[in-house]
Simulated assay, not measured.
Amino acid sequence: MTPEELRGFCLDFNAATEEFPFRPEISVFKVRGKMFALSHLDAEPLTVNLKCDPDDAVRLREEYPAVAPGYHMNKRHWNTVTVGELPEQLVKELIEDSYDIVVAGLPRAERLKLDRP
């Protein structure tokens, strides 16, 4: 997955936006103002921080060397994923899971605007 593909995939989600609140080179992908992915798209290797269920976070770290506790994030809820070292489909699933976790935490009225349960 290239940086452009990562950006495009993140922005394909309903109401997803890209912002730069930290530095101009750090892309933060949000839904309704809540972050679900963060990446320095020009970095080598390409990594992305993703929200994760705490139990899944530990399991993924044990199973894949390319998944580490979230860099500069709450290590219980965030993982840093080295994109090129995992199958692209798995990376996409982890991004979608992160988006879904954030959406699930939104107020019901906001979720209804997104047409998601």
Rank of each mutant, 00 (worst) to 15 (best):
V91E: 07
K75M: 06
R111L: 06
Y64S: 06
P65G: 09
R7N: 06
A57F: 03
Y71R: 11
G70F: 04
L86R: 08
C10P: 06
D115N: 14
Y99H: 04
A66T: 09
A66V: 14
D56T: 07
R61Q: 15
F22E: 07
W78C: 03
D100G: 01
A109Y: 11
V67N: 08
G8T: 12
G8P: 01
R108I: 12
P107Q: 09
L114H: 02
K75A: 02
T80S: 11
R116S: 02
F20Q: 10
G105Q: 12
E96T: 10
E96L: 15
V31H: 04
D12S: 15
E63H: 11
L114Q: 09
T17M: 14
E62F: 00
H40L: 12
V58E: 15
N79F: 01
H40A: 12
K113F: 00
F36M: 14
N74Q: 08
H77G: 06
R23W: 02
F13E: 01
V102W: 08
E25C: 01
V67T: 05
L90Y: 05
E62C: 07
P3R: 06
L60R: 04
A57E: 02
A37T: 11
L86Y: 06
L38R: 01
L50M: 05
D97F: 05
L46W: 04
T82E: 13
K34Y: 06
L106A: 05
M1W: 01
E4M: 00
T17L: 13
P117A: 11
W78G: 00
K30N: 05
W78Q: 00
W78K: 05
L86F: 03
D42T: 13
P117N: 05
A37L: 12
A16V: 13
I95L: 14
Y64G: 02
D42F: 01
V67Q: 05
L50W: 02
F29K: 05
E96M: 01
E88R: 15
T47E: 12
D97H: 12
V58F: 02
R32I: 10
R59I: 03
P107M: 08
V31K: 06
K51H: 03
P65C: 04
L6W: 02
